[in-house]
Amino acid sequence: MNSRIKVNSTELIAKYVFIVSAAIAIFAVASITVYMIAKGTPALKSVGAVDLLFGTSWKPTADSPSYGILYIILTSIVGTTASILIGVPIAVLTAVFLTEVASKRLAAIVQPAVELLAAIPSVIYGLLGLMLLNPFMFKLEKILFNDSETHQFTGGSNLLSAIIVLAIMILPTVVNVSVSSIKAVSFDLRAASLALGASKIQTIFKVTLPAAKSGILTGVVLGIGRALGEAMAINMVAGGSVNLPLPFSSVRFLTTQLVSEMGYAEGIHRQVLFTVGLVLYIFIMAVNIVLLKLRKEASAND
């Protein structure tokens, strides 16, 4: 009788330990959300929501400081969009290569390469961008803006460098998700298309890819999330001043703004940085919700 009770209590304890472990994820997301909102909103009052979100002048340490983060928000949007526009076509075509075109031997070279690209720490991308991309951009800048009197030279640390680094960094994410969704397309569809006289390429682009559309879209949204949230690599290549996001301007992203100023900011400046964090968090949550919807649709279609 006694041992029976002991077993039952062990069972019960085990069950509750597991429940608590599972609930920690909820606790984490809830407290992150609460903290981001609690720390991110005071600046909206002390600076003024409109001045803060739509102001274009960022002078946090001036005598009469101004805290406009519009250019920072725009940079994140422009940078992410551009990197997606460059990265996604390359990624989807790579996925097509891996699933439809490549022989097993070739795929065995390309697939691990893509996986390793995903594993390389972002600071290494930043380091290489700093050493290779920036000097190249500086040369280009000198040629392009030779006669310009208004252009501020950046030494190559500009939006374009950041976009290229981001486009490379989202490649593995989009490739991997696209590969699995292309692989999931039924072979019958391809066979039918080929039997009707379509060429292999026509089959890929008119039948297989459209059928894998929702999976590829999931990959793209994941890529958007990755690009929006990337901080260290682009902080090393994008320059250090808040500007309108033009290709050859030194810019600050939402993430790089946090990385480079959080260390020393005080008072209202610090509050504003938390608001920058909140804006980033809202963007990320929006991306997450879209992702969830896409996944639900995909599982409903199955």
Binding site: A28, V29, G229, A231, G277, L280, Y281, I284
Partner: peptide, 16 residues
Amino acid sequence: ATETLSGIPSIIFGLF
């Protein structure tokens, strides 16, 4: 929550 947690970028984890 698990899904969201895996989508949050590391800089936000750093802030939190």
